Computed example of a mutant assay.
Amino acid sequence: MLSRLVLCLLILAYTPILHAHKASDSYLTLKTAGERIDGRWDIALRDLDYAIGLDSDDNGEITWGEMRSRRNAVFDYARSHLSITGGNVPCPVQPGDYLIDTHTDGAYSVLTFTAACGAELSNITVNYSLLFDLDPQHRGLLRVEYGQATHTTVLSPTHDSQQIELSDVKPGAAFLQYLKEGVWHIWFGYDHILFLLSLLFPSVLIRLNRSWLPAEGFHPVLIEVIKIVTAFTVAHSLTLSLATLGVIELPSRWVESAIAASVVLAALNNVYPLISKKLWLVAFGFGLIHGLGFANVLKDLGLPKDMLILALLAFNLGVEAGQLAIVSVFLPAAFFLRRSWGYRRLLVDAGSVLIAMVALVWLAERSLNTQLVDWELLFK
């Protein structure tokens, strides 16, 4: 059991380190009317440069001239990773305008296109594979608009196809949709998971005479974990709501860098403890920052104006459900193993150092808005 737990931690840390730069997103919006689809696809310039090369003179800056010269290559690359069908009928994508826009995390190429399906649309199926072969953390944020209704979802390597019924979205369906997106976000949010694990590692231990000793009873451990999880929940729910409603707004680059820094500090605190009691205060303080990260994802997904509060509540509950699932798996195993040398040395000490190293790479790459190491090439 110990070896399996260690292996899970190493896999969890190893997966994001292959692409430790800020996880990329693209924004795909489809507006349907009759048999026609009008599309807009925003793809980060840094991702396109990584995939097909845009900076022809390798000076670290992508000019409009370089972008324009690669227009056909960009459209061909994007179109080869997207297919749309209406019913069972293919909807061929025809390129339109080629523009540049700025998001909170940098410059994006904007590809507009049209697709004619040849018949009145009642449903569409979107198959998406952009960058999945290069960056397993990449996500496509899909927004489909039809009449007064809006459907949103996240496309990923494990969820690369989505069928959408073009009908009014009922409150119950919208609630389940945003609940699911909240669960998926926490499960694929490696930085949030590693931060939570860093706080949970010492929850089954007691700090005494500069050493970690096993806690005696499960009840005090459970109370401590409840405090940590509750504090983290309250904090990120607060900033998630305020940021989503537009009360707080900070650049994505600042938020993502601060989240990486929180993981570094939480992990190093296990190795060189400055705070060994009342870790719920740490969870609350850093939870405020993580809530802003959750809000960026939720805003990118898009919120239905007529069901704003419902969608916000569902996404928040989804995040909590995903978080509780992680805790419910980790805590019993950690309590069972707390007396072993392996738990304290391999997981708490070595595991925390490994987490801090991964998060330091995230911090450097997110704050500098660059990729320091070509992990794809290194591990081939």
Rank of each mutant, 00 (worst) to 15 (best):
L313I: 12
L196S: 06
V297H: 01
L347D: 02
V110E: 04
F294W: 11
F201D: 04
V297A: 13
R339Q: 09
G106S: 11
A258W: 08
S122D: 09
I193K: 06
S211Y: 05
I226G: 13
H185C: 04
A116R: 07
L205A: 03
L347H: 04
L7I: 13
D349Q: 15
T244V: 10
F335E: 02
G318K: 03
R338W: 10
L372E: 13
L30E: 10
D38F: 06
M1K: 09
Y27G: 01
A20E: 04
I326E: 06
G322Q: 01
V204T: 11
I223K: 14
Q323P: 05
G39F: 00
V327Q: 04
S340H: 15
F132L: 10
A13N: 11
H192L: 08
I275N: 00
I11E: 05
I62V: 09
R143I: 00
D42C: 07
T29M: 06
T152M: 09
V234K: 01
E165D: 13
L10G: 09
L346P: 00
H19K: 14
S352L: 10
L279P: 01
E320V: 05
H236G: 04
K170H: 12
L281P: 11
I84P: 01
V144R: 02
L179N: 00
W375H: 11
V110W: 03
W375I: 13
P251D: 12
D49Y: 03
L279A: 07
V319G: 00
S257H: 07
P92Q: 12
T102N: 15
L208M: 13
L313A: 11
A33R: 08
S24C: 01
A258S: 14
H290K: 14
L131T: 00
F336K: 14
T114W: 02
T150V: 15
S257C: 08
G302Y: 03
V74N: 10
F330Q: 04
